[in-house]
Nucleic acid binder design. Structure first.
Lengths: 159, 159
DNA sequence: TTGCTCCTCACGTCACGTGAGGTGGC
DNA sequence: TTGCTCCTCACGTCACGTGAGGTGGC
């Protein structure tokens, strides 16, 4: 298994630079890693796991993963424990995608894979839509108030 | 000042019942009160502040306030300190409304009040819209994925 | 009076923030 | 070699959760 095959840190970021790019802190990244929310970080070799005490290195895939985790946490407002459930489902989805493309699944197996993907996506969408509806409702309340103020301003201008 | 004029606990809720109705816990309500996010709770008299150690009582206004605070915290994902800033602005807005309706503000003063209301509402709306846009973007990404899965399902059905 | 809920400490937990003291090198 | 960033403890903080022990009464 070469470093290229393992693939990750072709452009390698250190933890401070990664944190700056995604808008968080090294402490948070280390904490998420400790909880297993991100894959284990790589070491200097880039193909083998990091030895304790050595610098962590991150590739584009790690950055994308971290952004996704932070976005879900921020937008859905879930605990890190719930977040782990979500990203585990994401990982399962990625495995299914992999089997679809690189395996030779039977037609029956293909149907099963698609059904599972659909279930997962429906679940995520339901969570998102509920939140979006709540936000939209609050927003329309504010817009109504805003319009009332505008109306009063016009009345003053007319007098 | 009669209990009716002070107005609050006409239908008086105790903390457990209030918590159940709005979907939180007594501990959280006490904590918010301690931070000054809610007005000080009333006592048995309902017109005078609660004496230490006595039961808290809450009226419909308290319930509405608590719901609003929880909604802002949940949807905007802000800290309780930022939340305090937001609700203080809300309170200032309520005072301006009161002056508008029950005072005798001059036309110049009326214009100033409206301008301040507009500034506040614009600020809230900007926060909300950014969040809603992020949610909508994530949602459309999921919808795209969902459609791709549907497409693959149709291909399987046709074969 | 008996339960049930309430009260006030006060310690525990989650998700990090913030140094202390030391090592490493994209 | 000198800085700068990184490392690992480890304690602090925010926003509550969770008993302990006791009092109150929509």
């Amino acid at each position: 298994v070469s470093a290229v095959a393992a693939g990750q840190p072709v452009v390698a970021l250190r933890i401070g630079e990664l944190a700056r790019r995604v808008g968080t802190t090294p402490r948070t990244i280390r904490y998420y890693e400790e909880l297993g929310l991100l894959g284990a970080s790589r070491g200097a070799d880039a193909a083998t796991p990091r030895e304790a005490g050595r610098h962590r290195l991150y590739g584009p895939g790690d950055e994308e993963r971290l952004r996704e985790v932070m976005r879900l946490k921020d937008l859905l407002g879930v605990s890190l424990d719930e977040l782990r459930t979500l990203v585990e489902a994401e990982d399962a989805r990625a495995l299914l995608r992999d089997e679809w493309h690189h395996g030779e699944p039977s037609t029956t197996r293909r149907r099963t894979i698609l059904a599972e993907l659909t279930t997962h996506l429906d679940h995520q969408l339901a969570l998102l839509r509920r939140r979006r509806d709540e936000l939209t409702k609050l927003e329309s309340e504010l817009v109504t108030k805003h319009e009332r103020v505008r109306e009063l301003q016009r009345e003053l201008d007319d007098a």
